[in-house]
Nucleic acid binder design. Structure first.
Lengths: 142, 142
DNA sequence: GTACAAATTTAACCGAGGCTAAGTTAATGG
DNA sequence: CCATTAACTTAGCCTCGGTTAAATTTGTAC
């Protein structure tokens, strides 16, 4: 039972760690996406995409800047640092894998898109490998 | 593109809603589990299981009480209300389905347990149906 | 009845992530 | 050059979920 408790406690610590990085991952991923589509990313773009106020974006971006993920100029567009770009790439790949997997098991596009936003933050490398193996075996990687 | 934005925004609103209920679901599920195993559930039990301080549990339980999920007596054990019991049942079933599914696709027990704690809060009813159909087709419901 | 230990409650603090309101900056059009 | 608009920043607020420290309550042993 003590072992049971220790393992359970470990799981919840892990979940809290996942949550702690979730916003960073979402912002970094979105900045890369908007930059790729429009040439640049501004705070107002993020506010629209995340359905939050512009102030929420300003404050969140300030934290990302402090942690070295983005660079900003006052009143100007945002850019990812080299470190941010690497994270964006990793997070993007993870997102695509989870999305493809959900669709492969029959989840509709709309639902798969929505569920992926939350699920992607809680899959271990091992689980991602199983998703990829499943996709390869079922040849449904689109 | 505007449609793209609206859909994206919808997904993040959905994720925030999932997060808003996550702690409630975890506590209600855990209270039911501990009560089933030990006959009663106390705050210190939850603090151990979730790896948080006893004060965190006291405050969180106060919120659950305010929202009608649990009943408490000062310095006494916690009990779920009828509404809490119904939620616990639903959440438990969801947890079991996600866990069984991850194991069915080859994720190790330990990793599946850890990932399920986070994933369970982000699966739609449709996604759960696909998980169950997969389990039935593959006859790996354990 | 007293001492002690464990559990719970209260107080105060923190950071994250959300908001509204007001002020500032930059770009644009006339 | 001025007015206007859109975007951003600052100030202040909120809830949630976490902490430590101190006080209170309860149960148990002697």
């Amino acid at each position: 039972m003590a072992k049971d408790t220790a393992q359970g406690a470990h799981r919840f610590r892990r979940t809290r760690r996942d949550h702690a990085t979730e916003i960073t991952h979402d912002y970094v991923e979105m900045i890369a996406k908007i930059e790729a589509m429009h040439g640049e990313c501004r705070g107002s773009d993020l506010a629209r995409q995340f359905a939050v106020s512009h102030v929420t974006v300003t404050k969140t971006v300030a934290r990302l800047k402090k942690d070295g993920w983005v660079q900003t100029v006052p009143y100007g567009p945002l850019t990812l640092t080299a470190k941010g770009k690497r994270l964006a790439k990793t997070v993007r790949a993870r997102h695509e894998t989870v999305l493809a997997f959900l669709k492969a098991i029959g989840v509709s596009e709309e639902t798969a898109e929505a569920d992926t936003e939350g699920i992607e933050h809680h899959v271990s490398p091992e689980t991602l490998r199983c998703f990829r193996r499943f996709l390869k075996q079922n040849k449904l990687s689109n």
